[in-house]
Amino acid sequence: MRDLTNAAPFAFVGSLLVRIGGSVFVACRSRAVEELFYRVDTGARSVWPYCRGAFVSDELLANATEACHALEQDVRNVSLPTEFTLAYTELAASFLSCLATGSVPSQQAVVDRASSAVDVLASGLETAVGARDFERACQEDACQILTGWEQDSLAAVRQLRRRTDEWALVYQRFVRPELGSFHA
């Protein structure tokens, strides 16, 4: 089992990637692009076992990184502002590299890049005008959840993972509002 001392920043950044990835997922224009997204998302979601002390397979991370670069090359097949999708792939590639090496991601740099990407999403899609405020609220909530890391890191990871999945659904509805009509 790995030392979990520095795992909280990984949880924060992984949560951010999974939630904004929700918008990328529903904007994929083909099955092939969806498959690339799934591979990237699998790499991002490997943060949850990582934060519980498990080692993440080098093969899984390499596969996710390869898919990340392929998705970056096929950005025209994602129905989102190009700058947003490229920011997602850039953040994902950087995060996957951090997971592979164990180097702690710079939380502030990730927040800055993600915030500018969400600004692009909010200004590029009429249905995503609330994305800026929503992302800030998600970041604050994630930080609040992670304050419990010292007392019970596993409970904090479980809570953050559950909330992240909820937040990813909201990002999906920013891109495809009709998805929310079935969850009243």
Results as ranks from 00 to 15, higher is better:
V33G: 10
E35D: 14
E35R: 15
E35L: 14
E35Q: 14
L36H: 10
L36T: 05
L36D: 10
F37N: 08
F37A: 05
Y38G: 06
Y38Q: 14
Y38W: 15
Y38R: 14
Y38C: 12
R39V: 02
R39P: 02
V40D: 06
V40Y: 10
V40H: 08
D41H: 13
D41R: 11
T42M: 11
T42G: 15
G43L: 00
G43I: 01
G43F: 03
R45D: 02
R45S: 01
S46G: 03
S46E: 04
V47D: 05
V47F: 06
W48R: 13
W48L: 11
W48H: 10
P49R: 07
P49C: 03
Y50M: 04
Y50N: 04
C51A: 04
C51M: 01
C51F: 01
C51L: 00
R52W: 04
R52G: 04
R52P: 01
G53C: 00
G53M: 01
G53T: 01
G53Q: 02
F55P: 03
V56Q: 05
V56L: 08
D58C: 04
D58A: 14
E59H: 06
E59P: 00
L60F: 02
L60I: 09
L61T: 01
A62H: 07
A62S: 11
N63W: 05
A64G: 05
A64W: 05
T65L: 12
E66G: 09
E66F: 10
E66Q: 13
A67I: 00
A67Q: 01
A67P: 00
H69D: 10
H69P: 00
A70L: 11
A70H: 09
A70P: 01
A70K: 12
L71M: 15
L71W: 08
L71Y: 07
L71C: 04
E72R: 14
E72P: 00
E72W: 11
E72S: 14
Q73Y: 06
D74I: 02
V75Q: 08
V75E: 11
V75D: 08
V75H: 11
V75A: 13
R76N: 11
R76C: 08
N77D: 15
V78W: 08
V78Y: 09
S79L: 09
S79T: 04
L80M: 08
L80Q: 07
L80I: 05
P81L: 03
T82V: 15
T82I: 12
T82Q: 15
T82W: 11
T82F: 12
E83R: 15
E83C: 06
F84Y: 15
F84S: 10
T85L: 09
T85Q: 11
L86C: 09
L86A: 06
